[in-house]
Amino acid sequence: MRNENEQEKLTPEDFERVTIDAHHSERIEKPSLSFWQDAWLGLRKNKAAIVSMIILLVVIIMALIGPHLNGHAGDAQNLRHANLPPKIPGIEATGFFDGDGKLAGKTVNLYEMKKVDEYYWFGTDGLGRDLFTRLWEGTRVSLFIAFVAAAIDMVIGVAYGGISGYFGGRTDDIMQRVVEILIGIPTLIVVILMIMIMDPGITAIIVAITITGWIGMSRIVRAQTLKYKSQEFVLASRTLGAKDGKIITKHLLPNMLGIIIINTMFTIPNAIFFEAFLSFIGIGLQPPAASLGTLINDGYKVMENQPYVLLFPAIVISVLMIAFNLIGDGLRDALDPKMKD
């Protein structure tokens, strides 16, 4: 039964038996990764998210140190220096940011006209305040509001959703009836009503944003809790005598961490938007306080003649929103197990 194929001659050594431990091919090739390492590996591949993180870092740093960079105080009014266009040393020679502005329909260098020697990088407003300093002060306030609001949303949402889902039964029933009513109320209405009855300010905005903001998070956390608590590994842990506290901290929270982070990443830009929105329609922060919303509102009023007043805060808020959304997208792709193969 040997074949009739033409067979080349091979050396007898070729046919020596070799013994292979087949089990070596079963060893796990990849090193085991922690949650954060895995997330980072996924995120690192997403160029848009990485660029966004760098930009976000720069904006945060500028929000912290920016107001101190050029020696002008944000609240220092100098009417002689009012309505100056941007002038940046070094770049002025190129024809951009050289202090030229429109006056009565003609383009003139307002710095020369008003005999101003100082540089206002992003120009000044109608009261002669330095817009560069005010921009970063405003960014700081907007970011502060957004981070605090997102953190409060997260804490309340996780606690409410977790308790409702974990304890179930009557507790869950009552808590969910409350949510069902609350979710029907449009966010916008609640935010505006809340802000109207409080003294305008940062606290009022944060309270207004968070008063219904946590509901989304609580629903997600409740659904996840329900999903995981009925799974075998939780049952196994319970059989071995684990207490509720241990099951929640060791088994449930680590599994939900990804989705909680993703959701928080999307509440931050939402909070930035609502702050700016409220300030823009005039019921948010009140002058002289600056936030991105009030700066855009100020800029909008003088858009016709001094467009630069609107331009810079508009750019910063757009960049911030884009960056947070892209990081959120990147994190979702990296952390969401549904997206993994």
């Binding site: 830009p269 929105f277 823009f280 855009i296 800029g299 909008y300 508009a314 757009s318 947070f324």
Partner: peptide, 11 residues
């Protein structure tokens, strides 16, 4: 999604 409607409207 990112650019607020009032910024876009102003522009």
């Amino acid at each position: 999604i990112s650019i607020p409607s009032f910024v876009f409207a102003s522009l």
